[in-house]
Design a protein around this nucleic acid. Structure first.
Lengths: 358, 358
DNA sequence: TTGAAAGCGCTAACAC
DNA sequence: GTGTTAGCGCTTTCAA
């Protein structure tokens, strides 16, 4: 069952390989019918490898994300795949596990293997995308950027707006002791979500002390630990903003383990919706955004760049976010926001396990 | 910035291209140091395309799943990717959306593009994998099989055991009016989970009537609709088994919308854990299994087959499942299991929207 | 329009 | 161990 080659088809159709090749690439050919028949008979399929070697184009795209297991990135990948398939592109998937080394290695290995890449870079100081770009590999940034990257296409979200609305929501409810559980500040979303949230608080006269500003790692365990630390403070916050979905899951687990009642004792706002977020009791208030669409747009941008030979001006698309107010946010339990009066205990254990948080 | 070729390296090192090639493939060569230096200087990277064309091996594997957005498949993909990367393999990802046409197209297109494929086939009657196999493409089945596929490697789970334990759990709690919300019966898990569950019930003298046996589609909406129909019955079940995670999410949404209290009014067991399942109120009782491991094992099987030239005997791995009893299951509300007495109303609305279920 | 010929970058025989 | 030669299967000049 060895594969038929273009030469076999040519022979059978009584033409040259070149003619078959022209037929395949859409040029008009006299012996079209014979060739079609020969292809059919031989079940001929052009070798994508040979084609790519010759043409220099692979018709494949790499999508590089920290973790497909994160529902956000899963959605992104799905959106990207759907668009790619419409244009007959194939999709390579790489997980970096938020590991810069890994990302550098992947990117370096990609040149010559794909026509372009969609990348959610691990840190903003990353230089690998620049090298890839210089090596002629078009890169579209997804959700995150790197420093000084005006020459790259990017599909981002309005982290600032979403975080501002989250902050305003909590302030409007009357919270003053508001904490933020942030991911790594070296990434675009980590930085933007934090900055905007804190600024909004500040503009309303609320400045969370250091221990209220947790730096996690965008992972579930980070969210869990951060919440544990926050609730061990002498004056724990009455509200918190958790800046990504995985950490939110961890935070909820921590609250559940300690036995904190949401929102009676503590209000919580997450970033990115989760599968069952609306079914939790209380349903979770989150900053939401179009996830599959973000992946789809990134792929569209990339394909556009591949097809428009002229190196068109880089495009940055910023998607809107939306605050979904559900049940996990409510006014604070205590009308006396100033620590000075003893905060009423909100759980059995946490005030005894006081721990400083750097 | 055009890429250096093997000829450039050879020239610079003062040897022939063949020698450089030998060096690259690990053979011992006299001029190793010079070649290494030349490669370094020129930042030479062998073209994977040319290499593949010549050698016939691509060092890439296709993973074909219905939907990466399903947490189970996301985990599978992650497991597979992790193993692939250890062996320097690249991973193509394809979503089929449970569409057989799409699956056939993908599989046909794969020959010559990858060294092997991991596939979760859409239906058991699928013939495409056989054709791929005949065309020389090694295929490993994941989670699902096709009819008469003894020549394929496969990594499955003990659907029967898990479903049996789910059934026994509900029976032991005293339930008699037990429903099953199943996915498509044309897939291995759909069939096995259903058969085993029903058999177990039967062996204990419980035979759910037709309307208690819902056939969904393994999607969230299917679960939602199925539950809506079940609860519109004159004698709704007191317990239900939902055979996959997406449908379980839909089922929970339906219960939430109608206002059914779990487990007081209705017990529910799902298949596959979900991100927040343990945090729901009540936390969800599910049949769990190792998800990433399933993907990792599939990749290992495939790589083993690629490297063992001898066509080793096909391997079927069946992973164990585990019933995680959490809070969504409890004894039935009513000690009178026999319909005959009017079932007590369990929600405001559902008894008025009675709808026959085929 | 078409065929002949060259070559994409690499590896695998084959002699030495 | 090494160089020479011959392709892997295709596309793209170049003449006709």
């Amino acid at each position: 069952m060895s594969e038929a080659t273009i030469a076999d088809v040519a022979r059978r159709a009584g033409v040259s390989a070149a003619t078959v090749s022209r037929f395949l690439t859409g040029h008009s050919v006299r012996a079209a019918d014979l060739i079609r028949a020969a292809i059919e008979d031989l079940d001929y399929r052009p070798s994508p490898l040979a084609r790519s070697l010759r043409s220099g184009r692979t018709r494949s795209i790499a999508v590089i994300v920290p973790d497909v297991t994160n529902p956000f990135f899963a959605a992104v990948v799905k959106g990207a795949e759907t668009v790619a398939r419409q244009d007959n592109y194939n999709l390579f998937l790489y997980n970096t596990d938020e590991d810069v080394e890994r990302e550098v290695a992947v990117l370096a290995d990609l040149v010559g293997r794909v026509d372009g890449a969609i990348l959610a870079p691990t840190v903003e100081s990353d230089e690998a995308p620049l090298r890839a770009h210089q090596a002629g590999l078009p890169v579209v940034f997804l959700d995150r950027e790197i420093d000084g990257s005006p020459m790259f296409d990017a599909v981002l979200v309005d982290n600032a707006g979403g975080s501002r609305r989250a902050a305003e929501h909590l302030l409007d409810l009357g919270h003053r002791r508001i904490a933020i559980v942030n991911g790594t500040p070296h990434s675009t979303p980590g930085r933007q979500r934090c900055e905007s949230f804190l600024e909004t608080l500040k503009s309303r006269g609320v400045e969370p002390p250091g221990p209220y500003q947790e730096r996690g790692d965008f992972r579930e365990e980070g969210g869990y630990q951060a919440v544990m630390r926050l609730l061990a403070l002498e004056y724990p916050p009455t509200a918190m903003y958790v800046t990504n979905n995985l950490m939110t899951a961890g935070a909820l687990r921590a609250l559940h383990d300690i036995g904190i009642r949401v929102p009676d004792q503590l209000s919580i706002v997450g970033f990115d919706d989760l599968q069952l977020a609306a079914l939790l009791l209380p349903p979770l208030t989150v900053v939401d955004r179009p996830m599959e669409e973000q992946g789809a747009l990134a792929m569209r941008l990339l394909l556009r760049r591949l097809h428009d030979n002229q190196d068109s001006v880089p495009r940055r698309i910023v998607l809107e976010t939306k605050l979904l107010v559900r049940g996990s946010t409510a006014p604070p339990p205590d009308a006396r926001p100033r620590p000075g009066l003893r905060a009423q205990p909100t759980a059995v254990s946490f005030s005894t396990t006081r721990r400083p948080s750097n």
